[in-house]
Nucleic acid binder design. Structure first.
Ligand code: MN
Ligand code: MN
Ligand code: MN
Ligand code: MN
Lengths: 148, 148
DNA sequence: TACATTTTGTAGCATGTGCTACATTTTGTC
DNA sequence: GACAAAATGTAGCACATGCTACAAAATGTA
């Protein structure tokens, strides 16, 4: 979510693969909320023409206060535009991110379903897993879906 | 990580499956650090007899200050015991959690490897994915490993 | 138009999780 | 035992992300 996310001078601490993995996981968590929000905004815009704060709150399972503050961050980081008391719109960047996330979400859910996992569980797990799936792994999921 | 995590009175807001999924993901994130720490502590104890703050810091890719404060939380929540300037030990609860996490971590990595994913990528992705894998999905991964 | 309801915004709180800078304690070496 | 180095601890900062309570604006309805 942070834009610059400035690297520390001696950023090569990872000494162990686990350290590097955990740092990557933390980075993924930092962008996760942005991803879920833009995805939800795109869905709402498609379904009912516009995304309002209340819709997002219901959809995301948080209060409207949380939505509000998060939208300010998303605006700061260039994913959405918004004026007070108006609907929320995605920027070009936001729209691109939303499409990638929708795509990835679908792939992860389908993949889990293909392993025989129950629909609801697939949805529950995918919502967390999706943010930690690298391009390489996503490609493997797609391959598996085409083949198997 | 929170122990009580008191439910709000009207905790049945989720209205949508996505809301429920996101709430679950947030809960998983709350226990994630505890899981990674106890796993690291168990590994270090096995490898060199005891886990020290510096070892954990190196291993987890954070400063010793972060380790310190986190250990206080883990102590509060009953996963570890520690005295100042001494090694860190897992409680019964902590040990049990560590074993489950080690097991799950291995399964997730093996599963990704079985899809043809590069070893390093598998490790990187697994570190995040593992915390969002439900028992049902974990079972499916194991099934796939035995079969495929 | 007047009033109630809904929506949106804001103030202020809590907790988690990262950090640097500095203090203290322990450990290793001579 | 004395001194240096390493390990550990603490103070205090930043930011993200959740919340309740209250205020203001917009919207719907009689
Ligand atoms: Mn998600
Ligand atoms: Mn999603
Ligand atoms: Mn992990
Ligand atoms: Mn995660």
């Amino acid at each position: 979510m942070k834009k610059p996310a400035r690297q520390s001078k001696k950023s090569v601490r990872p000494s162990s693969l686990q350290a590097e993995s955990l740092q990557q996981t933390r980075r993924e968590h930092a962008t996760e909320i942005a991803e879920d929000y833009v995805e939800a905004i795109a869905d709402l815009a498609a379904a009912q023409g516009e995304a309002r704060v209340v819709d997002l709150a219901r959809r995301l399972g948080v209060t409207h206060v949380t939505v509000n503050r998060t939208l300010a961050r998303l605006q700061r980081d260039g994913y959405v535009t918004a004026q007070p008391y108006r609907a929320i719109f995605l920027t070009g960047t936001g729209r691109k991110l939303a499409e990638a996330c929708q795509q990835r979400h679908t792939t992860v859910v389908s993949f889990l379903r293909s392993l025989g996992i129950n629909e609801k569980t697939a949805e529950l797990d995918a919502e967390g897993i999706e943010h930690h799936v690298s391009p390489e792994t996503l490609a493997a999921f797609e391959r598996h879906l085409r083949k198997g």
